[in-house]
Amino acid sequence: MRVSFTVNGRPQEADDVWEGESLLYVLRERLGLPGSKNACEQGECGSCTVRLDGVPVCSCLVAAGQVEGREVVTVEGLADYAKQRSCGDSCGTSLDEAKGWQAEGTDSQTGEGTELSPIQQAFIDAGAVQCGFCTPGLLVAADEMLERNPNPTDADIREALSGNLCRCTGYEKIMDAVRLAAARQGEAV
């Protein structure tokens, strides 16, 4: 079957999709967006978390056909998504900004120069990334929580991220990262 939906603001089409394929498979193997991860493929680990019409879901549990006509945001689109949110409707590209992008460029080896969302930057700065396999799902989930709850308590953070397993960090640096992103968000307002 053919599935048409929007991914990170862009219309996408996938052809020859077998009915049993998950949204995760279509993103990773058909659309070239492997950022959403495949740690368990059974809805237990949260590594495949994406936003589906704004709601965080395990994309491994969503049949590809279910996303027909809907909007998906993945980790690859998180920086743009956060930028849109922070500047609301007035999110045009100024000439200066456009020049800035040209001048910067990105390093394909290290990603240096890439524009990041506040939660992405906070994960790097706080040391919340080790192997990084849980990171994309955690970023999408944490970003969604901060959108709803800009001043979370520790208990709020733990509750919101309880569906995302991490095996490397012991979660302490992830807590630090979310606190840091919340604090920076507070300063910016």
Binding site: P34, G35, G111, T114, L116, F123, I124, D125, G132
Partner: peptide
């Protein structure tokens, strides 16, 4: 900070 940090938070790191 990790040299692979940016790629890991943008989903571009190739596992």
């Amino acid at each position: 900070l990790r040299p692979d940090g940016t790629l890991k938070v943008t989903g571009e790191f190739a596992y």
